[in-house]
């Protein structure tokens, strides 16, 4: 390798490192500003260090209520979208049938549509149906955009598996329930679990589609947005930091579990 090329490589590495640092700057600010004692109503400017927000994260009951509402929506959506999406993935991977390409297109379409359009068009449907928007319309909307993610994720994880094992189980005298619990479920479980986590995260995070279809109910992002005009307390940063920590712990333990599985297989 000549010196010129080595220099190019080093430059590239340096550039990539800078981009990675750039990705973390706003996150760093989020954590730092959770320790800020804001001067006015909005936590936009540094004033002085304080642990107040961490000592009293639930100071604002609306934020706490909204966070609980988000968790409630997330749990229901995860179960519903998880079931619907997994069934679709199973059908698409296990069976050969006509119209598969069409179904795959339908699944991908919601991922290529701006959220504003999805949110607003769904609202026009609810208006036509005279459904009052609120808790259940939020659930319906979240399930709609999460099904696609679940189907795609589960499909990718269970592709290439030898489904004849199911037949083998049946031949050996296992009933359909037993076959499902002992053979099918262990195969699809890691994919379903990954998809469930993703769904929960997406549901918790969604603002745009929810904003159009939430009526008077407020999820955490909607509450933060609505309050923005009057105040942005440091507690929001505390919640953000906690969500980040939880996600990191889950991701790290996921990697560790995967590694142990691989080692056991070898």
């Amino acid at each position: 390798m000549n010196t010129q090329r080595r220099w190019v490589s080093r430059l590239l590495d340096g550039y990539a490192a800078l981009v990675l640092i750039f990705l973390f700057i706003p996150i760093g600010l989020m954590v730092v500003f959770s320790f800020n004692q804001p001067r006015g109503q909005r936590n936009y400017e540094w004033n002085h260090f304080s642990l107040n927000a961490w000592k009293d994260p639930f100071k604002y009951p609306e934020l706490k209520r909204a966070l609980l509402k988000s968790l409630e929506v997330g749990a229901i959506v995860t179960v519903l979208a998880g079931c619907l999406g997994t069934l679709m993935a199973l059908a698409l991977v296990k069976y050969r049938f006509r119209g598969k390409g069409f179904i795959n297109t339908i699944i991908v379409l919601p991922l290529t549509m701006p959220e504003v359009v999805m949110g607003f068009s769904l609202l026009t449907l609810f208006v036509n149906l005279r459904w009052e928007t609120g808790f259940w319309t939020i659930v319906v909307a979240h399930v709609m955009f999460c099904v696609s993610y679940v189907a795609t994720t589960v499909k990718a994880r269970i592709r290439g598996f030898d489904w004849r094992l199911e037949e083998a189980a049946a031949d050996l005298g296992a009933g359909p329930v037993r076959t499902f619990l002992r053979v099918t479920f262990p195969i699809i479980a890691p994919g379903v679990f990954a998809a469930a986590l993703l769904t929960f995260a997406l549901s918790l995070d969604d603002f745009t589609i929810t904003y159009f279809n939430s009526g008077r109910v407020r999820t955490f992002p909607v509450e933060v947005f609505t309050q923005k005009r009057s105040r942005v307390p440091a507690q929001i940063n505390v919640f953000g930091t906690m969500i980040l920590l939880a996600a990191t712990v889950i991701a790290v333990s996921g990697v560790l579990i995967e590694r142990r599985r691989q080692r056991e297989r070898v």
Binding site: L23, F24, P26, I27, F207, V224, N237, I243, A247, V255
Partner: peptide
């Protein structure tokens, strides 16, 4: 994982961070 990690915080909270970053 490092590329994706910052995006596990809520979209709105990232927007608030950008407001802090670019504020006067």
């Amino acid at each position: 994982a490092l590329v994706v990690l910052p995006f596990f915080t809520t979209y709105l909270i990232r927007a608030i961070s950008w407001r802090i970053l670019l504020g006067d």
